[in-house]
Design a protein around this nucleic acid. Structure first.
Length: 372
RNA sequence: GCGAAUAUGGUGAAGUGGUUAACACACCAGUUUGUGGCACUGGCAUGCGUGGGUUCGAUCCCCACUAUUCGCC
């Protein structure tokens, strides 16, 4: 089935909205944070951990799975769900984001037909097109496929972005034409940097193509300012239909989740929660903390007093710091479990707040304690 | 007791008669937003065993002492 979004309540004071998304693997509430599982694994987490974090959808990546183990092997295994034995919904990113960062010479390597780039694994020359990306995603059999878009740097000029938006629209159309998996939804992506005219144009034209959901892409690229990012959301979201899910791609700092939700975003994904975990950091109610810091050496309290995750229920900062400083794998695991649950629990609280029309109060209270 | 070698930061160490003593590890701190997993960026010896001497100038040369290691009696 195609995903179906149900708008159940709009916050009285902001654009924040509470709803549900129906998928092949059940109905989930939004706003929702999707943990990233690039290579068909949310790094350091078992499926049991993912379930305990109460995650809804998880994200996997077309580019990585295309290279290894290859979409044919995954199809042979019975699709991504069977391959990784995950019985929740999976969204696949198109590979656009990776491919553009791998394309050395933007002018030469990015053509109308597709993108030339070199594999990050062995340097071999590869070529990815909108059709190819969609066909791979069809084979992976994810629940939601993303259009193959051009993801230009934040520093790109208006002129460059204008052409890029046009090309992304043509690519979206080409992808949609070859998309051929009735169980799989296909989302369109709005681009246009921080320019109001481009975001508006991109959104309106993308919506005309009638996708199953819409995402806002090209944000937080190469040091884009938060102001520009929020503008990009504002300029895009007002042209997106109310009855389709809105997904802000790649965003996951607590502060940005709040700003996105306030503007009407339903879905987020981000590598941050698990990446900073691998680097010894944890989200907490009072801000992000670095467990490597000496001040936690004798801190026998949990990462976050209010957290119900396995790490917080069973271990102390001092212990986790010990694991992190001695490069023990369990440190990354516990922090990944915690950070993932932290963001998802935050979403749970936000949904309750929206239902009570008190999103702004929640945000204010949250930010009072959260200082970075 | 005699002889020899070596003494550089928390550790392993490089180095030179002349402005800021290499590098690595450890340590300390920071970064991370559609993931190129276990990364990256900074900081970290006002001092080269101690005391004297030579020299315009010594961590680097000389002497003594101390410590360590090795060998001999």
């Amino acid at each position: 089935m195609k995903v179906k979004y149900n708008l159940l309540h709009k916050d009285a004071n902001t654009n924040a909205r509470y709803g549900t998304i129906e998928t092949n693997y059940g109905t989930y509430e939004t706003p929702m944070f999707m943990p990233v599982g690039t290579k068909a694994t949310v790094k350091a987490l078992t499926n049991r951990d993912i379930k305990e974090a109460k995650a809804g959808i998880i994200l996997a990546n077309t580019y990585h799975l295309w290279l290894r183990p290859g979409e044919d092997l995954i199809a042979k295994a019975g699709g991504l769900h069977k391959f990784m034995n995950f019985d929740g919904p999976i969204l696949t990113d198109s590979g656009g984001f990776q491919v553009f960062s791998l394309a050395k010479n933007k002018k030469k390597d990015i053509t109308e037909e597709g993108v030339h780039f070199k594999s990050h694994i062995d340097g071999q020359k590869l070529f990815l097109t909108p059709e190819k990306s969609i066909m791979i995603q069809n084979k992976l059999d994810s629940d939601i496929a993303m259009s193959f878009d051009e993801c230009p740097p934040a520093s790109a000029s208006h002129e460059y972005l204008k052409n890029s938006v046009e090309r992304t629209l043509r690519w979206a159309k080409r992808g949609k034409e070859v998309h051929n998996n009735p169980r799989q939804s296909l989302f369109g992506i709005v681009q246009g940097g921080a320019y109001e005219d481009l975001r508006k144009y991109s959104a309106i034209e993308t919506v005309k193509m009638d996708f199953d959901g819409y995402s806002i892409g090209g944000v937080a690229n190469d040091g884009e300012s938060k102001e520009d990012m929020y503008k990009a959301i504002d300029y895009s979201i007002k042209y997106l239909p109310e009855d389709k899910v809105r997904y802000l791609m790649g965003i996951g700092e607590p502060l940005d989740l709040l700003e996105g939700i306030e503007r009407g975003v339903d879905l987020f994904d981000c590598v941050l929660s698990t990446r900073i975990a691998r680097h010894g950091n944890a989200f907490t109610r009072s801000g992000k903390i670095n467990l490597r810091n000496a001040k936690y050496r004798e801190d026998f309290s949990p990462l976050d007093e209010n957290c119900d995750c396995y790490a917080c229920q069973n271990h102390t900062k001092a212990y986790i710091r010990h694991l992190v400083t001695t490069d023990e794998i369990l440190g990354a695991e516990l922090l990944s479990i915690h950070n993932t649950r932290f963001l998802i629990k935050m979403m749970e609280e936000i949904r309750e707040a929206i239902k009570k029309d008190s999103f702004l109060e929640y945000k204010e209270k949250f930010l009072e304690k959260y200082n970075n």
